[in-house]
């Protein structure tokens, strides 16, 4: 049996998780203090996921950049691919918070959305 150690990032508590694996199967999770922690530990052991936040260029906005983020988590190994998509585009102002900036980014099923209102200059 293999043991993996993680620090949970589901919330700021920072619980120390121990995930016991048998091959690719999670057998037991220890150290979590809530259901989110259990989900995190299982996911982290099999296929780590993260939310991603960055900025896209915005034309004619009060700032040159619009902060954006993925509405849900995406596979960790795909982060740089997502960042590349985000870097490649420019959107026109105005934008409202939660407007979809890139739908279903690189087929992850997750939208990249605006983090704030951005009025026109």
């Amino acid at each position: 049996m293999e043991e993996k150690n993680f620090i949970c990032t589901a919330c700021p508590m920072g619980c120390k998780l121990i995930v016991r694996m048998e091959g690719d199967e999670v057998v037991k999770i220890l150290g979590h203090r809530c259901r989110k922690g259990e989900t995190y530990g299982r996911q982290e052991a099999i296929a780590p996921q993260r939310m991603v936040a960055s900025t896209v260029r915005i034309a004619n906005g009060i700032h040159p950049l619009l902060p954006v983020y993925t509405k849900g988590s995406i596979p960790k190994r795909k982060i740089f691919e997502v960042l590349e998509k985000i870097r490649a585009i420019e959107v026109p102002a105005p934008v409202k918070a939660e407007d979809v900036i890139i739908a279903n980014v690189i087929g992850t099923g997750v939208d990249v959305i605006a983090s704030r209102d951005m009025p026109e200059k």
């Binding site: 919330c11 700021p12 939310m51 936040a53 960055s54 900025t55 902060p67 983020y69 918070a97 939660e98 983090s115 704030r116 209102d117």
Partner: peptide
């Protein structure tokens, strides 16, 4: 612009600007 805000207040994982918004 990173996420991690609002887990207590809104029970959502929000970036700073959206929390402020």
């Amino acid at each position: 612009i990173h996420n991690g805000f609002g887990l207590q207040t809104f029970k959502e994982d929000l970036p700073g600007p959206e929390y402020a918004q």
